[in-house]
Every structure is written in structure tokens, then in C-alpha cells.
């Protein structure tokens, strides 16, 4: 709080003090009071005002300056009510009271939303779990009654399964709670799981999937990594180049402090101007608008999951030639336990 602001705020008070002093002096003069008496009275009046004003300034300035400092220093501004000390003047006490009341009400409100969102998330998890049952059942039916039409059903079923996973992982990635389990995972096994899961659809598009140097372990959550790779595969399938036989190459390289997983396809690539935005929510870009419809959620969720697991993901692409994603797994002994 600036001192000039304080004075400006009390200007009316000073005007009335000045007026009062003027009137008193006028009366004293009219009653022919002694000149010395007039001077002493005026001096006492002025000194008293200066003293009380100084006292007021000190009290308020310390309180408000303290408040402002703490507010500036706070990362979460709403914690200010917990941080302020109750001052000894009424106005300040009143403000603190209001802080506390509004804060309490806000906390209750947030708790209600948090409960709602947790319930919603539980429902989503349960729903995904339930929808997998009819999907499983249909997959088995297609298999037990092989025919051309069932091949087509199968492709659509795999799409449904993929979309349900997107819902599940979106809800997981947006949630603040830690529901992943980081441990040593074999890249070979993870890639093999996801390849086998997408076998029908990869073969349908005649894609050859090659792997190189995957005999390495990384620290991550296996299920989340499977989902991430699944999203990359489904993108590769969406953006196959009609000019050549589609190929996907998944390889890994190990360094002293990190392991890099590389995922490369020879699809239509990403235009250079779109590259900085592909991990953004709802971004579809040129590829998403032409041909295959895209929601712009897949890579956003991928990026989100990566950053929650502490992995870095980046992309490198040349339009019309290839797209390559790199996921960097840091090596951290902290997570290791036997």
C-alpha cells in the first residue's frame, strides 16, 4: 500500500479536521483568547492528529504490505486466507473473516466437483470394462463363423475396441490421481502384445511390421505404453501412402542415461507447418481434414500419458515420405526395486 494512496483515501477526514481547527481558532479569536493559548491548542490538535495518523498508517501498512507480499509469493493464491495473521484493527479482522468464509465455501464447492468427477471416472472405468464383454463375444462369434462379411465386422469391432480404449485412457490421463504402476517392462513383450492385438487390421492393410533391437527393459507402465503404441499404429493405418507398400519399423537404442524407442512409418507424413501442433488437443491439421476423419484427441492423450509417466515424446516427419516418433525413457534408479 502506497502512503499517498492512504492520504488520498482520507482526504475528506483531513478537510474536516482543517475546518474544525479553523472554526475553533475563529471562536477563540472572537472570545479574545490569549495568543499563546491559541497557539498551544492548535499545536496540540495538530500533533494529536499526526500521531494518530502515523499509528494508523503503521498498523495498516504492515498488514496490507504483508498481505500483498504473501499473495505475490504464493503459487496457489487461494491459500492466502490460511497465511494471513489476524490484525488488531476491526477492518482487518472483518476482511480476514470474509477470506475464511469464502475460502470454506469454495473448498466445499471443489470437493463436490471432485466427488462428481471421481464418480464419473469410476463409471467410465466400469462402462469400458462392461463394453469389453459384448466386444469379446462378437469377436468370438466372428471367429466361429468365418466368412467374408465377418472379416468386415471384425475390422469394425477392432475400431470399436480402439475407441473405447481412447475413452478409458483419456479419463485416466486427465485425472490427477496416480493410477499407473511404474516397473521394468520388456519392450519386446509390449510391442509383441500390441502387434498381436492389431494383427487382423495390420494384415488387412498388408502392413509389414519390423522390429529391431527391442531386447531391452524400460521403466514404465506396460498398459499405458501399449495404448500409446496402439495409437501410433492406428495413425499409421489412417495415413498410409498409396504410393508404396506400407511399413512400420519399431526400434530401440540404449544409452547410459536413457533408452530411446523409435517408431517409424512410411506413410504420407505430416506437413511441416502442422508439426508444432500435432500434440495439441483437437488439432486435426491438413491430414485430418483430407480423407480420414480425425478427432485430434489421440496424440493429445499420448502426449499427456507420456508426460505423466515422465517420458519425452517428439516427432520428426517429412511430408510424403515418413513419420517418426521418439519416446525417451529416462533411467532412474529411484524407481527400481526388486
Amino acid at each position: 500500500m502506497k502512503i499517498t494512496e492512504f492520504f488520498k483515501d482520507r482526504i475528506f477526514l483531513y478537510i474536516s479536521y482543517a475546518a474544525a481547527l479553523g472554526i475553533i481558532l475563529l471562536f477563540m479569536n472572537a472570545f479574545h483568547a490569549d495568543a499563546q493559548l491559541i497557539i498551544i491548542s492548535a499545536a496540540i490538535f495538530i500533533i494529536m492528529i499526526i500521531v494518530t495518523e502515523a499509528w494508523e498508517i503503521i498498523r495498516k501498512k504492515t498488514f496490507y504490505d504483508d498481505l500483498k507480499n504473501k499473495l505475490d509469493g504464493l503459487d496457489r493464491k487461494y491459500l492466502i486466507s490460511e497465511m494471513t495473521e489476524i490484525p488488531d484493527f476491526a477492518e482487518g479482522k472483518f476482511i480476514c473473516e470474509i477470506f475464511r468464509e469464502t475460502n470454506k465455501s469454495m473448498c466445499e464447492n471443489i470437493a463436490a466437483y471432485r466427488r462428481n468427477s471421481a464418480e464419473f471416472r469410476e463409471f467410465i472405468e466400469m462402462w469400458v470394462h462392461e463394453i469389453k464383454l459384448p466386444v469379446s463375444s462378437l469377436l468370438l462369434m466372428c471367429h466361429n463363423n468365418r466368412s467374408e462379411i465377418n472379416e468386415k465386422f471384425l475390422e469394425q469391432l477392432i475400431r470399436i475396441d480402439g475407441y473405447t480404449d481412447t475413452v478409458l485412457y483419456y479419463s485416466r490421463s486427465e485425472n490427477a490421481e496416480k493410477d499407473y504402476l511404474i516397473k521394468e517392462i520388456s519392450l519386446q513383450r509390449t510391442v509383441s502384445n500390441i502387434a498381436v492385438k492389431n494383427r487382423e487390421i495390420l494384415l488387412l492393410h498388408n502392413i509389414s511390421l519390423q522390429t529391431e533391437g527391442l531386447e531391452k527393459n524400460v521403466l514404465t507402465d506396460g498398459k499405458w505404453l501399449e495404448f500409446i503404441l496402439g495409437q501410433l499404429i492406428s495413425n499409421s493405418i489412417k495415413f498410409i501412402s498409396p504410393l508404396r507398400e506400407p511399413e512400420i519399423l519399431i526400434s530401440a537404442e540404449e544409452f547410459s542415461d536413457k533408452t530411446i524407442l523409435k517408431y517409424r512409418d512410411n506413410g504420407i507424413g505430416i506437413p511441416e507447418s502442422d508439426i508444432p501442433y500435432i500434440f495439441e488437443k483437437s488439432f486435426t491439421g491438413e491430414n485430418g481434414r483430407n480423407g480420414t476423419r480425425s478427432t485430434g484427441m489421440g496424440l493429445y492423450i499420448v502426449k499427456n500419458l507420456c508426460s505423466r509417466l515422465g517420458h519425452k515424446i517428439s516427432v520428426n516427419s517429412q511430408k510424403g515420405r515418413f513419420t517418426e516418433f521418439e519416446i525417451i525413457f529416462e533411467k532412474n534408479d529411484f524407481y527400481k526395486f526388486d
Binding site: Q188, S192, A195, V196, R199
Partner: peptide, 9 residues
Amino acid sequence: WDNNEFIND
């Protein structure tokens, strides 16, 4: 495929 040979048709 179960032996990590993800070949096409």
C-alpha cells in the same frame, strides 16, 4: 506373430 515375427501375407 506369437514369435515376434510380424510379417504380412
